[in-house]
């Protein structure tokens, strides 16, 4: 099963490679990984999407926590959360398909960020399922390039 982990770690050289090294060294799987500084410049936040049964995820979580540079690990897919990913897609946009491309990205609330005589670069944000859907729709028109950020996620605030 897919799990989204949020990892707070020291913003130090080598900290990221300790995490990725742990995954490769122990044969855990990384679907996507996104990392940047938090409000505190000494701390980074990493969103990590991984797959595995409960025993594996328990090991992943404990092993991450064992790293000296790691401050906190939470499996945010345990409860309600929001996830977002951004994708930049360069899609073929010739005279006969241009309108179709614009219609599709409009439905997905995307926008055009670069235009050339025969292509559009579009930006779309959303959960992974939405990104997948838009790629599936644009593929028949002709996708030239896809750049994805990987997922970032945040736990929802408690309702009360």
């Amino acid at each position: 099963m897919k799990h989204t982990l949020s990892v707070l770690l020291q913003n130090k050289p080598g900290a990221l490679s300790r995490v990725t090294g742990l995954f490769s060294g122990r044969g855990f799987n990384i679907e996507s990984l996104c990392v940047a500084e938090t409000l505190d410049p000494k701390v980074s936040c990493m969103t990590l999407v991984t797959k595995g049964n409960n025993a594996i995820i328990e090991q992943v979580t404990k092993q991450l926590h064992k790293l000296i540079d790691v401050i906190k690990v939470s499996d945010i897919s345990d409860s309600e959360y929001v996830e977002r990913e951004m994708v930049l897609i360069r899609v073929k946009a010739e005279a006969q398909t241009r309108a179709e491309v614009l219609r599709v990205i409009d439905i997905f609330r995307g926008k055009v960020v670069d235009v050339s005589p025969n292509s559009y670069a579009v930006e779309i944000t959303g959960p992974e399922s939405k990104i997948k859907a838009v790629i599936d729709l644009l593929r028949p028109i002709g996708i030239k390039e896809v750049i994805r950020t990987g997922t970032i996620a945040m736990a929802r605030a408690p309702k009360k």
Binding site: P13, G14, S17, R18, G21, L22, G25, I68
Partner: peptide
């Protein structure tokens, strides 16, 4: 430091 990352408890440069 890179080489010994997986075989130390922790390491420093």
């Amino acid at each position: 430091v890179g080489i010994t990352r997986p075989c130390t408890k922790h390491n420093y440069l």
